[in-house]
Design a binder for these strands. Structure first.
Length: 139
DNA sequence: GCCAACGTTGGC
DNA sequence: GCCAACGTTGGC
C-alpha cells in the first residue's frame, strides 16, 4: 500500500462535502499538473491518502481511500488528464496543521513542507504513521 | 489581497 | 530548444 495526500481548498470542495458523498466517493477532477497526475496514475485500489485543506485551515483533516484507479478526467476533453476517485474513510480526531508539520524534524522532508504547490503528493509510511498518531486515529 | 514559487505556453 | 510572458497555487 502506498500513501498519498490530496489538497483541496475547502471553499471549492471540503472534507464535509467529501464525507457526504459516502462510499460513492468523488472523482478528483481538475488536476492540470503532470507531477500530480503521474501520482494519481501510480495509485492502486485501496491506497490511502490524507485530505488536506489548503488556504483555509491549512491542515490535514481526514483519511481517504482510492476506490477507482486513474481514468480520463470527465471534466475535460483533453486526453492528457486523468484522475482517480476517492472516498472518505474517517476524519482525524484532531486536525494536523501545516504549522505543526513544519516544526517536527521527522516531517521536514514531507512534500507538504518542501513542495507547497504540488496538489497530489506521495506520503512516506513513517510520515503517515506520525500524522495518524498526531491526529488521534489508528494508522 | 499580495506575491513568491513554480509550471506552462508559444514565439523565435 | 531557449526563454520571456503569462497563469496558477497556496502561504502569509
Amino acid at each position: 500500500m502506498t500513501f498519498w495526500l490530496f489538497k483541496s481548498e475547502p471553499d471549492a470542495w471540503s472534507w464535509d462535502q467529501q464525507m457526504a458523498r459516502g462510499d460513492a466517493g468523488e472523482e478528483w477532477t481538475g488536476v492540470r499538473n503532470y507531477q500530480a497526475r503521474n501520482n494519481m496514475r501510480a495509485m492502486k485500489m485501496g491506497d490511502r491518502g490524507f485530505f488536506y485543506h489548503s488556504n483555509i485551515g491549512k491542515e490535514i483533516v481526514g483519511v481517504v481511500e482510492v476506490v477507482r484507479e486513474s481514468a480520463p478526467d470527465s471534466s475535460t476533453e483533453d486526453p492528457r488528464w486523468d484522475c482517480v476517485v476517492i472516498k472518505a474513510v474517517k476524519p482525524l480526531k484532531h486536525a494536523v496543521t501545516l504549522d505543526l508539520c513544519k516544526t517536527l524534524p521527522e516531517l521536514q522532508n514531507m512534500a507538504l513542507v518542501t513542495n507547497t504547490r504540488l496538489s497530489v503528493q506521495p506520503v512516506r509510511e513513517t510520515e503517515w504513521k506520525i500524522i495518524c498518531h498526531l491526529g488521534g486515529i489508528e494508522d
